[in-house]
Amino acid sequence: MAVRCASFRPRARRCPARGGGAARVLAGLLFLAALAPGAGRAQFEPAQFEPIVPGPVQPVSLELVLAVDTSSSVSPEEFDLQMHGFSGAFRDPSVIAAILATGTSGIAVSMIQWSDNRRQQLAVDWALLTDEASILAFAEAIDDTPRFLDGGGTAISGAIEFGLAELSRNAFAGTRQVIDISGDGRANQGASPDSLRDLAILQGVTVNGLAILNEDTSVADYYKTNVIGGEGAFVMTANDYESFALAIQEKLIKEIGGVPVAEGPGAPGAPGGRTVAAGAELAQMPEAAAERTALGGPRPPRRGVVPE
C-alpha cells in the first residue's frame, strides 16, 4: 500500500509504470553482450529486483468516504447545499466532540463526487482528524471544493466501487471502514448497487445512505433494500436539500461513534441467507429543519464547475 501524505487537494488518478527503466537497461545489456565475442557461450543470470514493500499505515478509529451526488438531478444550488451541509457539520460542536472522543487515533476522511458509471472524482483527499484544528481545516477544504462533475446519470454502484478503491489506496488502517452515499434518486446506470454493496460487505466495509426525498419519496426504501449494508448499516432521510445539513450532522455522529442503529443486509451466503433489513432506521428530518440557518454560519459563495 503506497503511503500518501494527507492533503486537501485532489490527486491525479494515473500512476507511473514501475520497472520500465530497469527493463530498458537490461535489454541494452543483452544487446551489447550479443555483439561481444563468445556471446553464444555467455550465461546470464535473471535480473534481481528489490521487492516493493508497502509503507507503514496509520491506525485510526474510522476510515470514512463521503460520496456526494453530482448527477444531472442535482442543481448548482442543491450541490451548494450539500457541500455547505458537510462543512457545517464538521464545524458543529457535537460532531467535533464525537471525533475527539475517538482518542489519539482519530478518524481518516475523504470526499468523492460521483455521477454516471465512468465519472467519479476524488474531491477532498484523505485527511487525519485528531483535534479541533485538523477538523476545522477539513471543513474549510470542503468549502473550497468546486464541483468537478456536472451532470450525468446516477450510478450508485460506480460510487461504491470508487469508494472501495479509495479505502484500499490510503495510508490508514481503520478499525471500521464506511462509505457514506448521499443522493436523491435511484440508480439508472451501471451495475445493480446491491452487487457492489455485497462486495463491500465481503471486504468488511459498511455502506450507509442519506436519501434526499425532494423528487422521489420512495428513495429511502430503495436505499434500504439496494444500497446500504454491512455491520450497523443505516439510511437516514432529509425531506429536501434545505434539511440536508441537520441530517448529515446526525448521520456523522452515528458513523463516527459507531452508534448502533439497525442491522443492514448481511453478507451473501451467510447462514440463513441474506438478512434484509426489515427496518433499517429511517430518521426523518422535521420540516422545521428547512427553516434553520445552515450549520456553520453564512453560506459561502456559489461554487463554479471545474471543466473536465
Rank of each mutant, 00 (worst) to 15 (best):
R41M: 08
A191D: 02
A34N: 12
F8L: 01
V53A: 12
A108I: 05
A165L: 07
W126E: 07
I99M: 05
G20I: 01
G103R: 04
P46T: 05
Q82L: 03
D240L: 11
T217V: 15
A23K: 10
F31M: 08
G21S: 11
G297R: 00
L66I: 12
Y222P: 03
T225Q: 15
A159V: 06
S218A: 14
A33D: 04
L295M: 04
A191T: 02
E45Y: 13
E263T: 01
G20E: 07
P301C: 13
R292I: 01
L32A: 15
R176N: 06
A270L: 13
V74W: 07
D194S: 05
V235C: 11
E78Y: 03
A262D: 13
I135D: 00
T237P: 02
S243T: 13
V53G: 02
I179H: 12
G209L: 08
I52T: 15
N214G: 10
A247C: 14
L282S: 11
G85M: 08
R169F: 13
P193C: 03
T154R: 09
D125V: 02
E161T: 07
G229Y: 11
A123S: 14
V53P: 00
V227D: 06
A233E: 04
R118H: 09
A89G: 12
L81S: 01
R274K: 15
L122T: 01
D131R: 09
T70I: 02
A17P: 10
Q249R: 11
G232P: 07
S110K: 05
L32P: 12
T145F: 03
R41I: 00
E250W: 01
R9N: 09
V235S: 00
A12N: 13
D221H: 11
S7F: 08
G158L: 13
R119K: 09
P93G: 06
G279S: 03
D116N: 15
R292T: 09
V235I: 10
F86E: 00
N239P: 10
E255H: 09
P16L: 15
V259R: 15
A123I: 13
A34E: 12
V124D: 03
G190D: 06
Q48R: 15
D194W: 04
R119V: 07
N239A: 08
A165T: 09
D150V: 05
W114G: 08
N188H: 07
V95N: 08
D69F: 04
I160E: 02
P146L: 10
V124F: 01
D216T: 11
V261S: 15
A137M: 03
R176V: 00
L196E: 03
R176W: 08
G264A: 09
P93D: 00
F86R: 04
F79R: 04
N208K: 05
E263W: 01
Q58S: 11
A123H: 08
P301W: 14
F79M: 01
D216W: 10
S115D: 10
D198P: 02
G190I: 07
T225I: 14
T293P: 00
R186G: 02
